[in-house]
Nucleic acid binder design. Sequence first.
DNA 1: TATTGTTATACTCTATAACTATA
DNA 2: TATAGTTATAGAGTATAACAATA
Lengths: 161, 161
Amino acid sequence: MTDLTALFTDLVRLETRLYNVLDARLKAEHDLPLGQFEFLRFIASRDTARVFDLAREVAITVGATSKAVDRLEAAGRIQRIANPDDRRSSLLELTPAGAEILAAATPTVEAELRTWIGSVLPAGVIEHLATSLSMLRQRAETDHRTDRTEPKTATDPKTSS
Amino acid sequence: MTDLTALFTDLVRLETRLYNVLDARLKAEHDLPLGQFEFLRFIASRDTARVFDLAREVAITVGATSKAVDRLEAAGRIQRIANPDDRRSSLLELTPAGAEILAAATPTVEAELRTWIGSVLPAGVIEHLATSLSMLRQRAETDHRTDRTEPKTATDPKTSS
DNA sequence: TATTGTTATACTCTATAACTATA
DNA sequence: TATAGTTATAGAGTATAACAATA
């Protein structure tokens, strides 16, 4: 029986350290924090992306996401454009500058990860690892308790005072 | 060739969501934030633990760690005791209350993780996953660029102005 | 009424850096 | 000189909550 707490600790420590090296390198070489890179990548990967979608993706509140989008827009990397289908929201799009910096940063990230992962595990093992992480992520994303898109709902009315 | 950027994204998203559910449950059932749980667990797992050791473990600065230790001490969960071998530092120890809450929280964490991991992947796959994460973590921890224990060092003197 | 987003406010946490004490 | 830790200061980022607009 695997010690899942130890597994979780390894997961957290690894994530922290990978995040730190990638963030430092992206800032140094592209003036792009890793968080912004993730936002750009998500927007580029979809037909349409709203603040709400971004919030759900990274599991932070809509308010926090709105401010992060402000920063990206101020940096000239994305644009809010009118959403013809729903006038409450905007659609987020990369500007040419945003597309350019994403294109430049992408191989940097892949190369850095190759150093940290590709040099430690053989290709087959990496493939299995990717599959496991993907399955676990999917499982975690189907459950509402794991996000922060909405304020914590009150306790179940039936059981609360 | 596995897309390592996608793998990294899955790793980050999974970590965030697992962290959120665990943190919420520990706070609700034991009034113990996950960060504090990790600190207690690290201290309990070692013969001796100093602020410096904790900082290196979680990859934050010594200053930030010192303040986190203040909070744990104020909560009555750990104690700083004199270090006979080096009077610059203290040794960190769990109080009886700290040991008790750690003992109570540990099965909660394991059970919650069982729900999220054990119910998705078969035992053998979990074992492989644990091995891979452990190896990658070890690799990441042997490199200095991944921690934040010290302020960023200046650029290499030979190449800086 | 519910959803989507923005904004003001407050708060938590962290880094940075100056400092003390000891090695 | 280098190491271990503390503390003041400042800043980044987040949640919360009130609000507006639209569905």
